[in-house]
Computed example of a mutant assay.
Amino acid sequence: MTLFSLILALALEYWRPGRSQDRFASLFSAYADMVERYFDTGMRRHGIAAWILAVVPVLALTGWIHHVLYGFSPLLGWMWNVAILYSTLSFRRLGDALAGIRDALRSGDTPLARDLSQGWSGASLEACNDTEIARCVIESGLIHAHRHVFAIIVCFVLLPGPLGPVLYRLSDLLSARWGGRVRAPDAFGHFAARAFEIVDWIPARSTAAGFAIAGNFEDAVYCWRVQAASWLNQAEGVILASGAGALGVRLGDALREPNGQYHRPEVGVGDEADADFLQSAIGLIWRTLMLWLLLLLALEIARWAG
C-alpha cells in the first residue's frame, strides 16, 4: 500500500494544492516556541530535552491515531497515511514557482524574475543578474525537491506508517528554528541541528543518487565525490553537487548582494545557469520522481510475487 498511498497523496497535492503544510508548520512552530521559552537556558542538555518534548508527543499521537484507525479498518489507517503525506509533501508549489521564474527569465523580465525568486526562496537577490537568479533558483529548487518531496518519500518507505514523514518534517522545522541560531557546540539549538543531520543522512544521499540516475550519471558521481565536501552544509553539498553534475551546470560561487558579495564553493560542471537550465532542473525533478515511483512499483511486485 506504500506506492498507492504516495500516488494518491501526490495526485491530491498536485491537483488540489492547499496550505496544509503551512498550517502544519505554523501549529508546530507555535508549540516549539512555547517549549523553547521554558527550556532555553543556552545549554545543550536543555536543548536535547526540549527537542524530545517537542518531537516525541507529536510522533506518539500520530502513531496512536494510525493504530486506532487501523484497528477499525485497514482502509482508515491507509487514509490516515495519505492525509499525513498530503500535509507534508509540496510538489505542485515547487513546479509552479520554478515555471513562473523560468518564463520571466525567458521573456527578459528580470525584475519580475527577481521578485518571484525572492518571494519563493526568501533569498536577497536585489543586485543579481539573470545568471545569478537562475543559479540561486536552481539551487533552491533542488533543495526544496529533496526536503519536501524525495526525503518524505524515503522516510515514508523506511519507517512504519506515517511516522517517517512526520519525524523528518519536525526535525527539519526544529533545525531551522533552533539550529539556525547555533553559535557554539554547547548551545541550546546544537542538538536540533545535529538531529536533523542524522535524520537527513540517508534521504540526502538517496536524493543525490536519484539525480545521478535521472541525469548525467558520470558527471553527477564525479561532482558528488570531488565537490560535495567543500559545501558547509554536507547534506546540501551532496544534493547540489550531484544535481549540478546531472544537469551539466555550474552552481554555487559568489552571489552578489546589495552590500557586496559572499563566496560559496562552486559545484557542478558545464555552462552558466540560465532559463534553459531552469527548465532542465524541472525535468530532472520530474524524472527523479518517476524513478522513485517505478522503484517502489518494482518492490511491490516483488513482494506480491514472493
Score class of each variant (00 low, 15 high):
residue 151 A to V: 08
residue 113 A to F: 13
residue 99 A to I: 08
residue 82 V to G: 14
residue 292 W to A: 03
residue 87 S to T: 15
residue 41 T to L: 09
residue 295 L to V: 08
residue 234 Q to C: 01
residue 31 Y to Q: 08
residue 178 W to V: 07
residue 205 R to L: 04
residue 187 A to F: 04
residue 274 D to F: 11
residue 261 Q to R: 12
residue 133 I to L: 02
residue 67 H to N: 10
residue 301 I to M: 09
residue 42 G to S: 07
residue 123 A to H: 15
residue 295 L to K: 02
residue 177 R to L: 11
residue 143 I to G: 03
residue 196 F to T: 03
residue 66 H to Y: 13
residue 236 E to V: 01
residue 163 L to M: 11
residue 224 W to S: 02
residue 227 Q to E: 00
residue 16 R to A: 14
residue 260 G to Q: 05
residue 188 F to V: 06
residue 93 R to F: 12
residue 53 L to V: 08
residue 45 R to C: 04
residue 17 P to R: 01
residue 95 G to Y: 15
residue 241 A to S: 09
residue 12 L to M: 12
residue 281 A to Q: 01
residue 48 I to N: 04
residue 234 Q to P: 01
residue 127 A to N: 08
residue 143 I to Y: 05
residue 190 H to P: 02
residue 95 G to D: 14
residue 60 A to V: 06
residue 62 T to P: 05
residue 300 E to W: 04
residue 63 G to Q: 02
residue 82 V to F: 15
residue 67 H to S: 12
residue 103 D to K: 13
residue 12 L to S: 10
residue 298 A to S: 00
residue 299 L to S: 06
residue 262 Y to L: 09
residue 239 I to D: 02
residue 281 A to M: 00
residue 238 V to E: 06
residue 32 A to K: 01
residue 21 Q to T: 11
residue 32 A to I: 01
residue 101 I to G: 10
residue 84 I to Y: 15
residue 95 G to S: 14
residue 168 Y to L: 09
residue 92 R to Q: 15
residue 30 A to C: 09
residue 199 V to L: 09
residue 284 L to H: 01
residue 12 L to F: 07
residue 197 E to R: 12
residue 267 V to D: 00
residue 83 A to D: 14
residue 108 G to P: 10
residue 104 A to L: 13
residue 207 T to D: 06
residue 250 R to S: 03
residue 5 S to Q: 13
residue 227 Q to W: 00
residue 10 L to K: 11
residue 62 T to H: 03
residue 243 G to K: 04
residue 179 G to L: 09
residue 157 V to W: 12
residue 211 F to A: 04
residue 182 V to F: 10
residue 19 R to M: 13
residue 162 P to H: 12
residue 22 D to A: 14
residue 240 L to A: 03
residue 259 N to K: 13
residue 120 W to E: 02
residue 226 V to F: 00
residue 278 L to G: 01
residue 180 G to Y: 11
residue 39 F to P: 03
residue 293 L to H: 08
residue 24 F to D: 04
residue 255 L to C: 08
residue 122 G to T: 13
residue 181 R to D: 10
residue 74 P to L: 15
residue 291 L to N: 01
residue 86 Y to R: 15
residue 249 V to D: 00
residue 250 R to A: 04
residue 295 L to D: 07
residue 210 G to F: 00
residue 7 I to M: 14
residue 48 I to P: 04
residue 57 P to K: 12
residue 73 S to R: 14
residue 152 I to K: 10
residue 230 S to C: 02
residue 198 I to V: 11
residue 173 L to R: 10
residue 90 S to W: 14
residue 206 S to F: 07
residue 298 A to E: 00
residue 239 I to Q: 03
residue 153 I to C: 05
residue 305 A to M: 12
residue 201 W to V: 03
residue 23 R to Y: 15
residue 202 I to D: 05
residue 269 V to R: 12
residue 296 L to Y: 11
residue 299 L to P: 03
